[in-house]
Design a protein around this nucleic acid. Structure first.
Lengths: 335, 335
DNA sequence: TTGTAAGCGTTATCAG
DNA sequence: CTGATAACGCTTACAA
C-alpha cells in the first residue's frame, strides 16, 4: 500500500504538504498540488480512513440500526425500500453506511457502544423496539440520531404520516358513496394507535357513525388474521360495504374469504389496503391503497442526520412528516 | 472518551498491560486482568476500532456490494432476504457490514478503492453488473471476495442451484401426469441460460418432446410480459396443460390472463412459479413454486468469506451450490 | 508477569 | 507556500 510518505519522497516534499495538497488546501501552490495529485494517482495511492478518522474524529460513516421487525427473515418491502434509499442518499453525500448491532466481535454490547466503537458520525434507527433500554440509551446520548416512525422526546424523527393516510382513505371511500365502512387494524403499536385514532377522527368529521362491530383487530402482514376478521364482518346482519385492511398483504387474507362467500370485488364489496407495495399494483383489480413514500422517508432521515452532524450546535430536534398518497385502484365501487 | 491510558493510570499499570488484559492475553495474571477489566467497565471504556485497525490491519468489517438490480427502488425479496442473512451471519461471527459504493466522499472511485479505503477484510458481492470492469477489478484483486449467483474464474461464488430447481419442477409436473409443459423464461442472463438449458435437459431425460411454441420469453418480475406470453400459449390449438413462470410475481400476470379466459387454476390449467417469495405462500390456491434458499445463500457467502479471510494461504476458490426446494402448493393438478 | 517504546497513516499546529 | 513534529489510540516486539 502506498502512503503519503511515499508520495512525499517521490515528489521531494514533506508529508504535511502532500496531506494538504491531497485535501485541496489553499495553502499549497497550484503547481505543487498538481504534481502531488498526479503522482498520487500514478502510484495508486488510496487514503486510509482509519488513520484519518483516528486523527480527525470524523468517519463519514453512518450507523444503520435495523432490527428485523418480524425476527424471522420475512422481509417488509417498506423497510427494504427505506434501507435502499438511505444507502443511496448517504452515498450521494459521501457517507458510508454500516449496520450497527449490539455485538462487537462476538461479545454483546449496547448499540451505542457499537456505534462509538466504529466511530459513526451518527445513527439512523430504521426499525427497532423503541421500548428497549438500549435504544433509549442510544437516542438519548450525544450521538446524533434520527428515528423513523417513532418520536422520542426532543429528538429528531421522520414519520410516515399515518394520520393523513387514514384520513384520506376514509374521505375517499366516503366520497365514493360508502357509509358502512369497516376497519381492520394491526397489532398494538404507536403506528396502529395513530391510525385507529385517525380513523375515528375522520369518521367523526364526516358525521359517520361506525358501529363497534365494524372495527376489528388483526395482525400486520398475516393474511390469516385479516381473513378471520373479514369473515366476521361478512357474517354481520348489516354488512359493511367497504373494508379497510391493515396492509396490502393482509388484504390477501380478506380476498380469499370474500371469494369464498362468492362475492366479487368491487361489485359486491369494496376494499382498501395500506402501504402500496409492488403487489398492490400488479393485482387485478388493482388495489386501492395508501402508498407510503418510503423512498422519501429514507432520504429525509439521512438528510436530517447529516444536518445534525454538521451543525451540532444549531440543529434543532424536529419531527418531519412524510406524506404518502392514495393509489386509486379499482377496488372501491362508486355507490 | 476514556482510553487505555486512563485505565492504565487508574490501575497503576502500563498501557501495554491494559491492552493485553483487555484482549484476554494469557500473559497477564488473572488478578491484574480482573482489576483492569472491572475498571475499564466502570470507567465506561469503549475501544476505538480505527486505532485498532490502523495498527493491526484488520477491521472485522465486511464490504457489501449491492447494486440495486432494478435501478429503481423496486425491491426484490430474494435480495433483501440475502442482505438480512448476511447481516445476521456477519454479526454472529463478530464482523460488521458496510455498504461499498463507487464513491468516496462524493468523488467517484472504484469499488476496490472504496473497500481498501475502508479497510474491509473482504467483500461480498450480492448483486451487480458482473461485466462491469470495476467489478472484475475487485474480484480479481487480492481482496477476499465472494460473489453470489455468478462464477468468476478461479474465484469463490455461491450459487442458487438453478439447474436443480428447474429439473425438480419439470420432474414434479411430469409425475403429476402432465406432458404438455410450457416454459416462460426471463430476460437473458447467466441465470436464465442455466434455467433454459436445464428445462431442456430435464425434458430430454424424460423423453418429453416440447414444441417450440411452448417456450416463450418474458421478463422477470414484470407480470405484464408473462401475461402476454400466457395469452399466446392459451391461444394455441394444442394448449399446454401446465405453465412454468419465470418467477412468482410474473405468475400474477399469467393469472389475470387465465382468469380472463374463464379458466380456473388448477382445474383447467396448472401453473408453477419460481422463487418462493412470501406472496406465493399467501395466494389461494397456494402457488407451487421452487423456493430459493436465500437465507442459506447469504449465510454461506459470509461463512466462506470469513474462511477466506482467516486462511488466505490455504483457502481454495470454490463454487457452492445452494439447493432450494419445491413448495408444493395447489396449482398443479394430478392428471 | 509487566513495562518500554516504536509505529500504524494521517492531520494539525506552529515555525520558517 | 512549505516543513518539522506531535498527536490520534492502540498493539506488539522486546526488554526487564
Amino acid at each position: 500500500m502506498v502512503k503519503i510518505k511515499d508520495i512525499a519522497a517521490r515528489c521531494k516534499v514533506s508529508v504535511a504538504t502532500v496531506s494538504k495538497a491531497l485535501n485541496g488546501s489553499s495553502e499549497i501552490s497550484k503547481k505543487t498540488t498538481d504534481k502531488i495529485v498526479k503522482t498520487a494517482s500514478e502510484m495508486g495511492y488510496i487514503a486510509n480512513s482509519n488513520a484519518r478518522s483516528l486523527k480527525t474524529n470524523r468517519s463519514y460513516n453512518l450507523g444503520l440500526l435495523y432490527v428485523d421487525p418480524s425476527q424471522s427473515g420475512l422481509e417488509h418491502e417498506y423497510f427494504s425500500t427505506i434501507l435502499n434509499s438511505i444507502k443511496a442518499e448517504a452515498e450521494h453525500f459521501g457517507f458510508d453506511v454500516t449496520f450497527i448491532s449490539n455485538k462487537i466481535g462476538g461479545k454483546t454490547n449496547s448499540y451505542l457502544t457499537h456505534a462509538r466503537y466504529r466511530g459513526c458520525d451518527g445513527v439512523v434507527v430504521v426499525s427497532a423496539d423503541f421500548k428497549d433500554p438500549e435504544i433509549i440509551e442510544l437516542v438519548e446520548s450525544n450521538m446524533p440520531t434520527v428515528t423513523i416512525d417513532h418520536v422520542f422526546n426532543n429528538r429528531t424523527s421522520i414519520m410516515s404520516d399515518n394520520n393523513r393516510g387514514l384520513g384520506e382513505i376514509v374521505k375517499y371511500i366516503y366520497e365514493k358513496g360508502h357509509r358502512k365502512i369497516a376497519f381492520i387494524y394491526g397489532e398494538d403499536t404507536t403506528v396502529t394507535q395513530q391510525r385507529v385514532a385517525s380513523f375515528h377522527q375522520a369518521c367523526e368529521s364526516l358525521n359517520l357513525e361506525i358501529p363497534e362491530a365494524y372495527i376489528k383487530q388483526a395482525y400486520y402482514h398475516i393474511p390469516k388474521y385479516s381473513g378471520i376478521a373479514t369473515r366476521e364482518l361478512l357474517a354481520l346482519d348489516d354488512r359493511p360495504t367497504c373494508i379497510i385492511f391493515p396492509d396490502d398483504y393482509s388484504y390477501m387474507g380478506g380476498l380469499t374469504e370474500i371469494e369464498k362467500h362468492g362475492l366479487k370485488i368491487p361489485e359486491d364489496i369494496s376494499v382498501v389496503g395500506y402501504d402500496g407495495i409492488y403487489l398492490s399494483r400488479i393485482l387485478r383489480p388493482m388495489l386501492t391503497t395508501y402508498v407510503q413514500d418510503s423512498k422519501e422517508i429514507g432520504k429525509t432521515s439521512v438528510l436530517k442526520l447529516i444536518e445534525m452532524i454538521e451543525n451540532p450546535k444549531t440543529f434543532m430536534a424536529q419531527q418531519v412528516f412524510i406524506n404518502g398518497h392514495l393509489q386509486e385502484g379499482q377496488t372501491v365501487k362508486q355507490i
